[in-house]
């Protein structure tokens, strides 16, 4: 776990003020609200927000929209992965049926 100070030190161009704004907006959710301890995922997320704003030139208003979409994509990906994991474990004939049904449904589009 990282303290607020550690995290800020490890991300270029990040300041304590910026980080606190993101926490307040809910873009970053430290594991413990009071102790402000951050995980590696929080660090990577803070880096992403810096990337989006500084390197890619998105505005502060754009970033929450982007993060919301990114979070939805990861939610969908995660559920899709678990679904695929289950399908992978089914007997071969059932898997073949599922595949066929998916293909025909796509064909119907």
């Amino acid at each position: 776990m990282l303290s607020e100070r550690d995290l800020v030190a490890r991300v270029q161009r990040l300041t304590v003020t910026r980080l606190r704004v993101w926490v307040k907006q809910g873009l970053i959710k430290p594991a413990e609200e009071t102790a402000q301890s951050f995980s590696e995922a929080d660090l990577a997320r803070a880096t992403l927000i810096c990337n989006l704003e500084d390197q890619l030139g998105f505005s502060e208003e754009d970033v929450p929209v982007l993060l919301n979409l990114i979070d939805q994509i990861h939610g969908l990906r995660s559920e899709l992965m678990s679904l695929l994991g289950v399908l992978e474990d089914l007997p071969p004939d059932v898997r073949a049926t599922v595949k066929m049904r998916i293909e025909s449904r796509r064909g119907r589009g």
Binding site: K29, A41, A44, T47, D71, H74, R77
Partner: peptide, 18 residues
């Protein structure tokens, strides 16, 4: 750089998944 996507699928990223 460790991109966020490397964490998003894991346990640590779970609370951000929408």
């Amino acid at each position: 750089q460790h991109y966020y996507r490397e964490y998003a699928g894991g346990q640590d990223g779970a609370r951000y998944r929408s």
